[in-house]
Nucleic acid binder design. Sequence first.
DNA 1: AAATTATTTGTTATGTTATAACATAACAGT
DNA 2: ACTGTTATGTTATAACATAACAAATAATTT
Lengths: 132, 132
Amino acid sequence: MPRPSRLPVHPSELVLKALKRSRKPLSAYELLEKLQQHGVKGPPIVYRALDGLMQKGVVHKIKALGTFVACNCAKDHHHALSVLTVCGDCHNVMELHDHAIIDHLEDLRGLGVPLQDHAVIELPITCEACAK
Amino acid sequence: MPRPSRLPVHPSELVLKALKRSRKPLSAYELLEKLQQHGVKGPPIVYRALDGLMQKGVVHKIKALGTFVACNCAKDHHHALSVLTVCGDCHNVMELHDHAIIDHLEDLRGLGVPLQDHAVIELPITCEACAK
DNA sequence: AAATTATTTGTTATGTTATAACATAACAGT
DNA sequence: ACTGTTATGTTATAACATAACAAATAATTT
């Protein structure tokens, strides 16, 4: 039996690039499908890559949908908090960078809510397009 | 009003009671297991009951955990917004009834965020016990 | 450098959460 | 009681996630 070969490119690079190319959030299995052509074989590889990227804060999980997005912040720009809107109708996701909003949510700490560092807050909305 | 069911008791009653009895959020499959003795046979019955209860606003889904809780508000007390804290460590969930916090989150609308009616906002926290 | 150990990466199998698809029973209006 | 509609029951499967193990790389000791 031939020895199994390692992947030519590191999984987390592949995953991050795929997420950046995608305009919408992707599920782990959508990522897997896309990356199979690059030799990625199973879910654990994708999930481990996602875990690492989430710890670095460059990828967020959308819990409402079970999908993942690349953070589209400027590279060296670290929020204490990430804020995502999720439309309940069309499931579109947007990351908000408006500091008025981010700071407003940070203010919850002052009201006694011990928010996690680098917390990701999902706001269930009805987007303008779906409101009509 | 739900329609009579072939089961001795209507599924949504069974589900709601089970959730109220439980001190912690339950998954649909935990509910199923508990309710099998009452004749509930499959996941869809549980999920449909949960959907109905969520529409009425008496049950919330914790998306971060894939579990469900009974709203412990006063019966006739309807929030425009529900706020849950979820500890990332111990996964404890609490529903907040502090109006300072609820109103603060409502204020997001004034900042241009078209929050859904009866939106459920999950706040990722580290609870006091786990902070140590 | 070789041997030892720890860590990471790859793979298989399985666990968990949720819904599709279809069948049947209850109600409303005729 | 027939028929259309909707709620409910059932089976099967889709979608999401991780446990457990194997193999390879990296780090550490000798």
